[in-house]
Amino acid sequence: MKFSTTCTASWKVLRQSKDNRYKLTSFDLQLFNGEKTEEATPKRRQESRKKGQVAKSNEINSVFVILAAFCTLKFLGDHAYTQLTGFMKTTLSSLATPDFTFQSVQLIYVKAVVVLLKTVLPVLFVIMIIAVMINFMQVGAMFSTEVIMPKFSKLNPISGFQRLFSKRSLVELAKSIFKVCIIGYFIYRFAVLQTGDIPKLINMEIIDSVALAASLVIDLAFQIIAVMMILAIFDYIYQWWEHNQSIKMSKQEVKEEFKQTEGNPQIKSKIKEKQRAIAMRRMMQEIPKADVVVTNPTHLAIALKYEKNMSAPVVLAKGQDFIAERIKQVARENKVVVVENKPLARALYPVVEIGDVVPPELYQAVAEVLAYVYRLKKRLS
């Protein structure tokens, strides 16, 4: 029988029992091989986010940036054309004047910068806004310096070679080839469909030919963007799936994280045990101050105290079974009256906690018990 550490199922073996018959016994191999089969916990996701590891598709960023650029060019094309043609007219006319000097060159340079800013800045501004919005929609507000920190492990040629042929690299290569094929197909299809219109540009006026060429290019761009948008949606789904797979945890990692966040169960159990012991000692120290202990008689015990400045009797101690016996023992040792009253004990126990006052509906029953105790103490004294 071959033992495979990569097996995700349980390993079943034959085990001989006392009656000399063999039985199947299962062993969970995940406990041995540490295979990551568990969904990431919120803490693991938060740690991954701090490291900059999030589900993000660069294809969606690229598509929307290109879309924003072409939409802006389409709406501001006339404005850019007016600015450029006006600049060219003034520049060419100034070159023909006899008083053209070095100061004229400087003025042309300044005008060129102004025209460039007027035509390019709106496009760049829209692209920047869209890029920020798309990134925010994908990953939210996130700032991580760990991504840009230098790591000497990246200089290892063996690790670099492994990353070169990793699954992620192969997927990115496949996407790039697919995009090139799609774009090439649409350019070829566009060229075939426009073979009759492109030669007409030669006989048109410059203004008309530029407008027609720009219109054809923008139409082609929108067709390519529509296909790339579909590809980007599938890429985002893949990135989300791949990210969730990369941060999965093994059962041992989940247990270790639980111990770190919630504390070791054994230690927590010991702490609770000590807390119960301290609470028990404190409760037993209060019993001598009680006026009466109401019992079931064997299963329940409630110690009550009443003074004139109190609005109602107060519960100093309560317990059942072993604790009830201990309460009665301490009460007898300190000469506290123990009264057997089954109905009152059963009614009090579930509705009061240590330090609570007796509820109003039980005032009369408790008053009768206290009256009996006071008469008994007076008779004994």
Rank of each mutant, 00 (worst) to 15 (best):
V217I: 15
I218N: 13
D219A: 14
L220Y: 11
A221H: 10
A221I: 14
A221V: 14
F222W: 14
F222I: 14
F222M: 15
I224S: 08
I224V: 13
I225K: 11
I225D: 10
A226V: 13
V227W: 14
M228I: 11
M229Q: 08
A232L: 12
A232S: 14
F234Q: 02
Y238S: 01
Y238C: 08
E242I: 02
E242T: 07
Q245S: 00
I247L: 00
S250Y: 03
K251M: 06
K251A: 11
K251V: 03
Q252Y: 10
Q252A: 11
K255G: 11
K255C: 05
E256V: 00
E257A: 01
E257W: 01
F258E: 11
F258T: 05
K259S: 00
Q260F: 03
Q260R: 15
Q260S: 15
G263W: 02
N264D: 14
P265T: 01
K268F: 00
K268S: 09
K270G: 00
Q275M: 15
R276N: 09
A277K: 07
A279K: 14
M280F: 02
M280G: 01
M280S: 10
R282Y: 04
R282Q: 15
R282S: 14
M283K: 07
M283Q: 07
M284L: 13
E286T: 11
E286K: 15
I287F: 03
P288L: 09
P288Q: 08
P288C: 06
A290E: 08
A290K: 09
D291R: 09
D291V: 05
V292K: 12
V292A: 05
V293M: 03
T295H: 10
N296E: 03
N296G: 13
P297I: 04
T298G: 03
T298N: 14
T298Q: 13
T298K: 10
H299Q: 12
H299L: 11
A301T: 03
A303I: 07
L304H: 03
N309L: 06
M310I: 01
A312L: 02
A312Y: 06
V314G: 01
V314D: 00
L316T: 10
L316Y: 09
A317K: 07
A317F: 05
G319V: 01
Q320E: 15
Q320S: 15
D321G: 08
I323T: 06
A324C: 04
E325D: 04
E325A: 06
I327T: 01
K328P: 04
Q329C: 04
Q329V: 02
Q329F: 09
Q329M: 04
V330G: 09
V330A: 04
E333M: 13
N334T: 06
K335M: 07
V336R: 12
V338F: 10
V338M: 14
V339W: 05
N341R: 12
K342I: 11
L344H: 05
L344P: 08
L344V: 11
R346E: 12
A347V: 10
A347K: 11
A347D: 08
Y349M: 12
P350A: 03
P350K: 02
V351A: 02
V352S: 05
E353I: 09
E353G: 10
I354H: 06
G355R: 08
G355S: 02
D356R: 02
D356S: 05
V357Y: 05
V357A: 09
V357M: 09
